[in-house]
Nucleic acid binder design. Structure first.
Lengths: 113, 113
DNA sequence: TACTATGCATTGATTTCTTATGTATATTTG
DNA sequence: CAAATATACATAAGAAATCAATGCATAGTA
């Protein structure tokens, strides 16, 4: 991860909710790989951070799960719920506003939509 | 603070270094008020977060301090060091890149400079 | 005189994430 | 075919950053 990990804090749930909002369903390992791919290896989600987050989202009713098997190997799919979709939108909006606010503070020229 | 506080994590040092880079010197309370003012009350730095941060910056040689008195009231000024200026620039650049990366992930249209 | 603002600071608890570890199957490569 | 790597789940101990609360003290205001 090229970013000082501090910055990443607080964005993980937002990222996961957004990923799941844009697809039918995803499994944990798939999320880590997709994020890595989409960010050109800049963001690497660790499993120790991801799984507790997924479990928390499930507990809060923002995602549901389906377990399937490929041969003997287990795979646990996560699906966004209706509440989860709402939460995803809220969080994306919040991040957008947050980034703009910080950018202003830091004198970064921005035109974020 | 309107932002879920999670997001703020990791940006505090960057904000403080930038504030100090843009001024001769500032004291703690002044920083909290200035950030509040510049963000339209959206970001409120708490003292429990600020002072440990300032002390850490001092310990790392990124800021120096001057104590003055207004009558009997103590005021502790923080000044950016040369190393601090460099760190500020690095961190601002890092935040910019980070925000762009996340924005891409979240499908936020952005044109950040 | 009481409340609010200014100004420093610490402490305990909480949240979030990292690093390390554990278990197991599947695939690729020398 | 053995060893290494990739896939796939997960937990646990600890670190790091922040919050909420508290404490002390002076200054100004209602």
């Amino acid at each position: 991860m090229i970013f000082s990990t501090e910055l990443l804090k607080g964005t993980l749930k937002t990222i996961v909710l957004k990923m799941l909002s844009d697809t039918d369903r995803m499994y944990g390992y798939e999320i880590t790989q997709r994020v890595k791919e989409l960010t050109g290896d800049k963001i690497q989600i660790t499993e120790g951070a991801l799984y507790p987050t997924l479990h928390a989202l499930e507990k809060d009713g923002l995602v549901t799960t389906q377990i399937e098997y490929l041969g003997k190997r287990q795979r646990k799919y996560y699906l966004i719920s209706k509440a989860g979709k709402g939460a995803a939108k809220e969080r994306v909006n919040e991040f957008t506003e947050f980034a703009q606010t910080i950018a202003t503070l830091l004198d970064i020229k921005t035109n974020m939509a």
